[in-house]
Design a protein around this nucleic acid. Sequence first.
RNA 1: GUGGUUGUAGCUCAGUUGGUUAGAGCGUCUGACUGUGGCUCAGAAGGUCGGGGGUUCAAAUCCCCUCAGCCACCCCA
Length: 435
Amino acid sequence: MTQPRTFRGTRDFLPPELIGRRKIQEIIELTYRRYGFQPLETPAIEYFDVLTGKSDETDKLIYKLEHKGDALGLRYDLTVPLARVVAQHKQLPRPFKRYQIQPVWRADRPQPRQGRFREFVQCDADIIGTASLLADAEIIALTNEILAKLGFEGFIIRLSSRKLLRGMASLICGDEEKVFPLCRCIDKLDKIGWDGVQKELAECGFTDDVRAKVEKFCGLWDENLDWSAAEKVLQNVEIGLEGLKEVREVYERAIQLGVPPERLKPDLTLARGLDYYTGPIYETVLPDKPHIGSLSGGGRYDGLVATFSKENVPATGTTLGLDRIQTAMKELGIFTEVPSETDVLIAQFDEEGLPAVLALATKLRKADFNVEVWYESDRLKKQFTYADRQQIPFVIILGPDERAAGKVTVKSLATGEQKTIPEAELTALLDSAKG
RNA sequence: GUGGUUGUAGCUCAGUUGGUUAGAGCGUCUGACUGUGGCUCAGAAGGUCGGGGGUUCAAAUCCCCUCAGCCACCCCA
């Protein structure tokens, strides 16, 4: 006998959970389409060299496969495969706006409470082929719209720019490349406060002078950003000014696209993200649920396609973490489990009635109802109990009495109301309840 | 990758200083109730007490090893 079990960090989705999960996915997909994105799917398995080389950290987390001499791997995200697709299929339009909702795999340690798994679904929307910051703003507007539609209230979209962070590193340390260790420390501000950040900075070997400047510089971004003060500080650092300008433009365009200002926060302490980001970066967090990581994360990655092609193609986009979103919704009590999507159960009263029952089922299915037929002539109690447990709203009985009268009996399990009506009136009744 | 913690029925958990045949609630199934769900009552099925080894007359309980889950960090969706 084989032990039934699933691999660590992977899960089965039973119907009540999956139905609710799919409703989230539908809202995401619908919104992507509203903004003019087209669907794309790519293989789970890619050549290993396609997946690697984008970031040292992530390379370690790629599931490596080997088959008959081919070096392969499971995709780690959807952005790298997109870059590959764009480099490979030159006939794609520009701008190319694609969405992609598929699982990805990462070999890190799972933590369900944080919405973190080894197999999880990413919902990506990316815009390839324009350097316009309007594209970045659109991505932010779309993220806001989806999360609002899903019922989230306290989320914050943090906005920064890799260029700005580089400028800060240059200004403070005199070395642009210090941006990564510097940001990693600052990024923890929300969790550990300034005392903690100072300690981290010291551990990373930053001098007292640098540490004082960091705190002062980040202070400019407290609450309401003072753009002109920030500009003044950065006056001799070109890349920083450029970054500041792009953050400002993305911010203003996003507001024009309807993002509430309280939801969008320019934030220098945002440092996360893959190494391939080059311009504006953004992520969504729930300040009330700090243990759940970011719900979404994205940014501009103008250099990535060039790793597959001579062409240098500007690109920006985001990913929504379906599993993070679901985890957060569960914790906030706004995730609904649904045991069944069946609209109506047709009971089996007696075998003689089966021809009429089956004909009715076929008719209702053609009228777009989800219909189940009970398989045995069991006691009605059993059939009703099943419908009740599965939250099927209607049970239809077509017994000898109904057949003799040329009618059907339909009971609403929600209200308990029961009527015996001509079959012709049935679809109207079911429709009215379906809303 | 680092540190911590917990493993008893499908799920959530009791189980006394080691002591007969390991319990409950929920869920599943059956019946009370042969044309009607939710409530109630009665009953049934379901357990290598994570696995292996040790101590003991006796281990779910004590010791060792191991595996798995979970939590925090790291990193991220």
